[in-house]
Amino acid sequence: MNTAPPDTAPPVSAPPVSAPHPLVDRFGRVHTDLRVSLTDRCNLRCTYCMPAEGPGWLARAEVLEDDEVVRLVRIAVERLGVRSVRLTGGEPLLRRGLAGLVERIAPLGVELSLTTNGIGLARTAAALREAGLGRVNVSLDTLRPERFAAITRRDRLGDVLAGLAAAKAAGLSPVKVNAVPVRGVNDDELVDLVSFAAGHGYRMRFIESMPLDAQGAWDRSAMVSAAEILAVLEERFDLVPVLRHGNAPAEEWRIAGTDAVVGVIASVTRPFCGGCDRVRLTADGQLRTCLFATAESDLRALLRGGADDAAIEAAWRAAVLGKGPGHAIGSADFVRPDRPMSAIGG
């Protein structure tokens, strides 16, 4: 959701640069945040993300094995200066042996978090925390059971709410709740969602919908903008701006007189590409320098072809060096990526 794709697939022959040199692109942006998708599979079918049926999932042999994931994360940390790792999907809780994978990544010394739809979190939160997971982001677009079923095509709201409670009880902190407001679907619940999150000690965040749905049906007119979200919230709450730290994508406000914080990620109307510090690794080992990239670098092929750490580092640096300036949504030059969000990793 952050920056533009390179115009062409970057070469993999650039000479290696030894650590601790940072991972820098041609615009001077230093990349310290890595998103790692563990699977393209999901057990929900959210209408703004996926069609009711399809697309097909990756074959098991295409998905990175645990050893491959750990090796790439280690290279990112030890040779490229990555400091935070977010495990994503699809739905990462569908990954077999997830706690064991977390247990292997945590000792690398990164800030380790996970984005999930919350289904299955009630039974896994404690084990994930014990394994070394620091915090979670949980998707929740509505508090109404019938609406949840309509949006996700699954009647699982109770599981998500139980997962949120389990995450908090396990000490996964802060627990962040992510919602995507869509006009005429759930945009009448903005205040209710903030009140719910504040009342339970969660941190609420709203995300502008983006053209990354598998069915290609995104309509900007249905997107609820950051300005609209804030206008609604300010009618009910006294919002005090919170100082933005580093390159965090969310603008945040504290509700006056409380510790409650609400954030807005305005990827479309207030793009933060100029400060982007992240790269993404898909479940099948493709490196993407931007959520909207139209080109990828095949790190899986290097891994399985016997490449050493230096060669993988060189490929990683070459890819980031080719990163573009911004995603260009809304311009005539914008091209939708071939992969939807579920196949890229949130």
Rank of each mutant, 00 (worst) to 15 (best):
E228I: 08
I229A: 01
L230N: 09
L230H: 06
L230F: 03
A231V: 08
A231S: 15
V232Q: 08
E234A: 14
E234K: 13
E235H: 11
E235W: 05
E235A: 14
R236V: 10
R236W: 08
R236D: 12
F237W: 12
D238I: 06
D238G: 04
D238L: 11
L239V: 00
L239F: 02
V240L: 14
P241H: 03
V242G: 06
V242D: 05
R244P: 05
R244K: 14
R244D: 14
H245V: 12
H245A: 14
E251I: 06
E251K: 09
E251Q: 14
W253A: 07
R254S: 12
I255P: 03
I255E: 04
I255W: 04
G257D: 11
G257C: 10
T258L: 07
D259P: 06
V261P: 03
V261Q: 05
V262N: 01
G263N: 02
G263F: 06
I265D: 03
A266Y: 05
S267E: 11
S267V: 00
V268R: 03
V268Q: 09
V268T: 05
T269I: 03
T269V: 07
T269D: 12
R270G: 08
P271I: 09
C276N: 15
D277V: 06
D277K: 01
R278D: 01
R278S: 00
R280P: 02
D284T: 11
D284H: 07
G285H: 12
G285V: 13
Q286N: 13
L287G: 10
R288V: 11
R288Q: 15
T289K: 07
T289C: 14
T289W: 07
T289H: 09
T289V: 15
L291R: 07
T294F: 04
T294A: 01
A295K: 14
A295F: 05
E296I: 03
S297A: 04
S297P: 03
D298W: 08
D298K: 02
L299M: 08
L299H: 05
R300H: 10
A301V: 04
A301R: 12
L302D: 04
L303N: 09
G305D: 00
G305R: 01
G305I: 02
G306R: 03
G306M: 01
G306I: 00
G306W: 00
G306A: 12
A307K: 00
D308A: 02
A310S: 13
A311S: 14
A311N: 08
A311T: 15
I312Q: 00
I312K: 01
I312W: 04
A314M: 03
A315L: 00
A315S: 06
A315N: 09
A315E: 13
R317G: 09
A318L: 09
A319W: 10
V320T: 01
L321K: 10
G322R: 10
G322F: 11
G322P: 07
K323E: 13
G324Q: 12
G326T: 13
G326C: 13
H327N: 10
A328C: 10
A328H: 11
A328R: 13
A328M: 11
I329K: 07
I329H: 14
I329Y: 14
G330E: 09
G330H: 05
A332N: 00
D333E: 15
D333F: 08
D333N: 06
F334N: 12
F334I: 01
V335P: 09
V335E: 15
R336G: 04
R336D: 04
